[in-house]
Computed example of a mutant assay.
Amino acid sequence: MQYYEDVEVGETEEFGEYQFDKEEIIEFAEKYDPQPFHTDEEAARESVFGELVASGWQTAAVCMRMLVDGYLRDQASMGARGVDELRWLKPVKPGDTLHIRAEIVDKRLSESNPHRGYVDNKMEGVNQDGEVVISWIGLGMMEVRDPDV
């Protein structure tokens, strides 16, 4: 288990792998983001994308799952304060496979709780061609192993 004291600014990790399929893209969009370019292949061909694409919210949710499975499960995570600078940079299409790249960009101790540290990560979802398709700054909280040191 990694605690606040165990991580350093500049550390970078890559993890996870998830392939998007057409049926899942449509199912997610019909429930949460029913815009035609996410739900209807014919309408999507007439859109700015020219083909069916995943909702950015689905892309974010998939990235969150990879983040939990490949990164946070080994950390003394205390959740997050939110995200900054969420950007959908390129559309995700059926058949695309993403992984996550995480870089610690800031860390500091909480002024109000000696058991908590703040660890901010620049997160990127990267497709099979090495293109960043989504990015954000995760404003994480981590447990301090020994607040009395």
Rank of each mutant, 00 (worst) to 15 (best):
Y3A: 10
D40Q: 07
E5P: 04
Y118Q: 12
E17L: 02
E143R: 14
V144I: 07
E51T: 12
L98C: 03
R145I: 03
A43P: 06
G56R: 05
G138N: 15
G125M: 06
H38E: 06
E85M: 10
H38G: 04
Y71F: 15
W88S: 10
D74I: 09
R81N: 14
G16Y: 08
I26D: 03
K122I: 11
K31V: 13
W57R: 10
T59Y: 00
G50A: 03
R45C: 02
R108W: 13
W57E: 07
T39H: 05
Y3T: 00
E143V: 09
A61L: 10
E51P: 02
T97N: 04
M64F: 14
E27K: 13
G50N: 04
V133M: 03
Y18L: 00
R145K: 15
E42T: 13
A54D: 09
E46T: 13
E14H: 01
M142K: 07
E24D: 15
E27Y: 02
T97G: 04
L109K: 13
V133A: 00
M142E: 13
H99M: 09
E111G: 14
P147D: 05
G79R: 00
M64H: 14
I134R: 01
V62K: 05
F37C: 03
L67Y: 13
C63G: 14
Q35Y: 14
N121P: 03
L86N: 00
E23T: 05
Y71N: 09
H99S: 09
R45A: 14
D148H: 13
Y71G: 03
K90F: 10
G10H: 06
Y71K: 13
K90Q: 15
T39A: 09
M123P: 03
Y118N: 08
V149E: 12
D74V: 01
E103F: 05
E51C: 06
K22C: 02
G79A: 13
G16V: 11
E46H: 10
R45N: 00
Y4I: 04
E103L: 03
T12P: 09
T12W: 10
N127C: 02
P94I: 01
I26F: 03
P94V: 07
Q19F: 00
P114R: 12
D120K: 06
E14G: 05
E17N: 11
A54G: 02
W88V: 09
V144R: 08
D33N: 08
